[in-house]
Design a protein around this nucleic acid. Structure first.
Lengths: 185, 185
DNA sequence: GTCTATAATATGATAGAC
DNA sequence: GTCTATCATATTATAGAC
């Protein structure tokens, strides 16, 4: 019987996420994760008996829950365009205006266990399929909607790559600004 | 007096690049780099006395030389559109149709030395500024050309992130297909 | 649930033979 | 120029006290 996630747990996951986000799976050493959370390594193993892989998966699950919140307007606003605009704003804040890296990019490199990479793809799919759904509601065909959603995802992720390289969130913010037209035409 | 780069060296750099590309800087252990090249760790240190950081920088310099070749049509074709189309084709092949990762994305994570991250940004700048130049030749203002080039870069890199996550090069190839209109209007 | 202590292994790097 | 051998440290992970 899993106890309901506490605020404390969310705080812990956010600290772990910060390390995985900026350093990737292999770069996130137990030492760095311990230092970031303020717990000792052995304490992390108490919470995550399967070690680093379990921590990475927990982080991805936390990100999925956060995505679910950011996606609410796009999923529920009666006006698809207004929903996309609002969700784009929320993603812009979530990624620090384009200056933060994304775990979906940095976590699933080749050193990460298959379970982690699969989980990352699942989380990305939540994001992409929500965009495809709103594009459908906006009148697009299934094929057009899916392609537009993939392109919108790629534009944002690429903007974050640019941001990491150059410390400039401009391309990311422009990508978000194009979401409404890209998804809804 | 540096000896001219030999075919053998290029082969070596490609093996090193393969490891850095798929695993990132911290994930690329000396053991993995040695296994991939067929050299022992000590032999790698003979060629790269400064160790892993020097190997990563050498890989980035090799990528810059390869980019210079891919960019030739875009830089020299009298017809800007034809040049962009051809260079987009070459990038498509270079990145395995969208299924290969890019060192500019995977190498400059937080564990990498500042020298490596700076070098990655320089290589990316070669690519972006070449696209900005052709957009200028196509009649765009300086500001429009730079923004379009950044967006074209981000679209491609984001397509590669999607490809790594889902094993689908579609978004990457569509990004390349949009380069001509994106850069030249 | 967190800690100290510890073990086994991996890693980056060097010395010196050939 | 490549190798074997080696070293110091970092890393993942576990045992057991509190």
């Amino acid at each position: 019987m899993p106890r309901p996630p506490s605020v404390q747990d969310d705080e812990l996951f956010d600290r772990l996420a910060e390390v995985f986000r900026t350093t990737g799976y292999e770069g996130a050493s137990l030492g760095a994760l311990a230092e970031s959370t303020g717990l000792k390594r052995a304490s992390l193993y108490h919470r995550f008996p399967d070690g680093k892989a379990q921590m990475a998966e927990a982080v991805l699950e936390r990100v999925e829950r956060l995505f679910d919140e950011l996606l609410v307007p796009m999923r529920t606003d009666p006006d698809p365009r207004a929903g996309v605009v609002r969700t784009a704003e929320l993603f812009g804040e979530f990624y620090g205006g384009g200056l933060l890296s994304c775990v979906l990019d940095t976590l699933p490199l080749s050193g990460a266990p298959e379970s982690v990479r699969r989980r990352a793809a699942q989380v990305a799919e939540v994001w992409v399929s929500a965009m495809a759904d709103v594009a459908r509601r906006g009148g697009r065909s299934v094929e057009e909607a899916r392609a537009a959603a993939e392109d919108a995802f790629a534009a944002a992720e690429g903007g974050l790559v640019y941001g990491r390289l150059f410390g400039d969130g401009g391309p990311f913010r422009r990508a978000l600004a194009r979401w409404p037209d890209l998804l809804l035409g």
